[in-house]
Simulated assay, not measured.
Amino acid sequence: MSSSARLRTVLADALTEDGALTDPAWHDAAQAVPRELFLSSYFVRVPDSAPTSYRPVHQGEDGWLEGIYTDRTLITQLDGRVRPGDVTDDSVTGDPTSSSTLPSLVLRMWQQLDVDAGQRVLEVGTGTGYSTALGAHRLGDDRLTSIEYDPVVGRAAASALASAGYAPRLVVGDGLRGDPYAGPSTYDRLIATCSVRYVPLAWLHQVKPGGKILVTLSGWGYASGLTLLTVTGPGSATGRLLPGFTSFMIARPHDRPPRPALPLLPGEERPSLIDPAMIGTWTGSWVAQLAAPAAERMGAGAEQILWDVSTGSQARTGLGPDGGWTVVQRGPVRLWDRVETAIRLWQAAGEPHQEGFGITVSAAGQRVWIGSEDGTGWDLPM
């Protein structure tokens, strides 16, 4: 047995023992697909670097193959253009824009999609092609179409898939618009390996009624939640957020607009009605993002900053001089007022994790709610 095959078996068995991999068919896929063909090089984060730096790891280097079969996400592109092979220095800074997601999450999502043999699947976000290869192995090349936004990433994925012996249908384009060559109700399932601020309407028409969409909802507050929707008709769906902690890079057309350096300007100060650290927790940040979807969140603990670049509205919190917390707000949108209201409603509902939230999509809009459809809710930006 080759080193690669041995490492694949070890990883697949470990994921099964951990409970991440429960379907024998997906275990077979994990054991069969050589992830190294999709990761001839990758970036690893340089510990304690500020700003965050990344070191390229190339094929043949010590630890290259072992790193590939560690259950972790491996960065493959920075700033939408820099790939590991482009770096001549020991390290480089930048924002990750493409990656190979940790295998346990990829396989868990394929299982959560609940896809059966014979069904047609649209994957949005080919990336390196590793997830696509797993899907093609399990379902067959003719049942899977994958769309990649970045043409350079798409070409590399196509080459890697061919090397691995898979030939699903590949498209380069804006996956948020769905398959440009497919008509309504073409697909039984849709799986997205990027996150979105709202569910693209094209998906709700290309997936058949009764079909499922698995996608991570996120936003400019950097909060995320994995969501499984059932299409109820053309342009409509309902679903729930799933347990766990799932995040993906946001689809580039949904990313926040560029902003200048943040000037902290004076505003109106008052006591805060909530502990600002609440919006630094996983679900607390999700609730805050629902309440103020156009705001970017920065800071930590009691010192939080919200900034809506579109209106110039700001909110910043801190410790009060006599205990408690204060907030300073300015601009036409009182961001902290909205966040406080949302957090207190969530607290009144018992502070459920995201699996306590659901979503309804219709011609009227997209609404996330707590508990039931007639419960507390917020509209997603569109």
Rank of each mutant, 00 (worst) to 15 (best):
S2Q: 06
S3F: 02
T9E: 03
D13Y: 09
L15P: 08
E17V: 15
G19A: 02
A20K: 03
A25H: 08
H27W: 05
L37V: 07
L39H: 08
S40T: 07
R45W: 04
V46K: 09
A50P: 00
Y54W: 15
E66S: 12
I68N: 04
Y69E: 05
D71E: 05
L74I: 11
I75R: 04
I75P: 08
R81M: 11
R81G: 14
R81D: 13
G85D: 15
D89R: 15
P96W: 07
P96V: 08
L102Y: 01
P103R: 02
W110I: 07
Q112I: 00
D114T: 07
A117I: 04
L122K: 10
V124C: 08
Y130S: 09
L134T: 12
G135D: 09
A136R: 13
A136H: 11
A136D: 11
H137C: 08
H137Y: 15
G140P: 12
R155W: 04
S159R: 14
A160D: 13
L161I: 07
S163E: 15
A164Y: 10
Y166E: 10
A167M: 10
V172L: 01
V172H: 05
V172F: 04
D174F: 01
G175S: 02
T186G: 04
D188K: 03
D188M: 00
D188V: 02
Y198K: 03
Y198A: 14
V199C: 08
P200V: 02
A202L: 02
H205K: 11
P209Y: 07
G210M: 10
I213D: 06
L217M: 11
S218A: 13
Y222D: 14
Y222N: 14
T230F: 07
V231E: 12
V231S: 14
P234N: 13
L242S: 09
F248W: 06
F248Q: 09
F248G: 02
M249A: 06
H254E: 05
R256Q: 13
P257T: 00
P258T: 05
P260K: 01
A261K: 12
L262M: 12
L262V: 10
L264G: 02
L265S: 13
E268N: 12
E268C: 10
E269K: 14
E269Q: 14
P271S: 08
S272C: 10
L273Y: 00
I279N: 08
G280C: 04
W286Q: 00
V287D: 06
L290F: 11
L290T: 06
A291C: 11
A291F: 05
R297T: 12
G301I: 02
Q304A: 10
I305L: 13
D308Y: 04
D308N: 12
V309P: 05
T311D: 03
G312D: 05
G312E: 05
R316M: 08
D322E: 10
G323D: 01
G324T: 01
G331Q: 04
R334A: 14
R334F: 10
W336C: 13
W336M: 15
D337G: 11
D337N: 13
T341S: 14
T341P: 00
A342D: 09
R344G: 06
W346Y: 08
A349E: 14
G358Q: 03
I359K: 04
T360M: 07
V361W: 02
S362M: 05
A363R: 06
Q366F: 01
R367L: 00
S372T: 15
D374L: 01
D379G: 00
D379Y: 03
L380P: 01
P381D: 00
M382F: 06
